[in-house]
């Protein structure tokens, strides 16, 4: 049947075949995000989800979740110069292995609602020193590297070691509050671990690409 075609038609078919082949190859690289559901042939994306988990020590030294009550109010915490227990971990709440990073920022909030950077009035006690599960990326983010030699891959439902155990306020934090309060902002981000590289070697979290844009 191909013999009946003109040269132009053959050329056109060849180009179309090459284009389709290329399309198939590119789709192949997307396989890391899809899952086949044979029953109805629907393709769905895998999920990457992340959750911040906060804990504190109660008066008996027991670790308890630091969470809002039924009205959505968190326990009142008073700024002070001595250590305030605040344990921060990150959980992979999705169905895909992922890399995670977190950022801690303190802001003073004046009564009129305006906020200002107050990083100079707080000391975070983070586990980001040498041999620690977290590493200071030097870009404002702490990256989870873990302790198991996998570069920081966090499996579904797994939780990181503590990023922070406590904090305390330093300097003249009373005046720096400008009659208002302080707000600790905890940001976490996750990016898929699959297909970060072509081979199976360990990829360190600092070499990971595709992090969401930071605010």
């Amino acid at each position: 049947m191909l013999n009946n075609l003109s040269d132009n038609q053959k050329r056109t078919l060849a180009l179309a075949a090459i284009a389709l082949l290329a399309l198939a190859c590119m789709c192949g690289t997307l396989a890391f995000t899809v899952d086949m559901v044979p029953a109805n042939n629907v393709l769905s994306f895998g999920s990457v989800k992340v959750r911040v988990c906060e804990y504190t020590l109660n008066e008996r030294g027991e670790e308890i979740p630091f969470e809002a009550n039924e009205r959505g109010d968190y326990p009142d915490t008073k700024a002070g110069g001595s250590d305030i227990s605040r344990i921060v971990r990150v959980e992979n709440a999705g169905a895909q292995p992922e890399y995670v990073r977190a950022r801690l920022r303190m802001a003073s909030v004046a009564p009129d609602g305006s906020s200002a950077n107050a990083s100079g009035n707080v000391a975070f006690h983070v586990n980001a020193g040498e041999g620690s599960p977290w590493i200071d990326g030097g870009d404002g983010w702490y990256y989870y590297r873990g302790l198991d030699g996998r570069g920081g891959v966090l499996d579904p439902s797994a939780m990181t070691e503590s990023l922070m155990d406590s904090l305390h306020f330093v300097g003249d934090y009373h005046d720096a509050a400008r009659g208002g309060s302080y707000r600790l902002d905890i940001d976490v981000q996750a990016v898929q671990a699959k297909n970060q590289q072509a081979n199976d070697t360990v990829l360190d979290v600092l070499d990971v690409v595709g992090w969401p844009e930071a605010n």
């Binding site: 630091f66 600790l184 969401p212």
Partner: peptide
């Protein structure tokens, strides 16, 4: 595929 979460205290 990425995800983000933010909380404040």
């Amino acid at each position: 595929l990425t995800a983000q979460e933010h909380i404040d205290n």
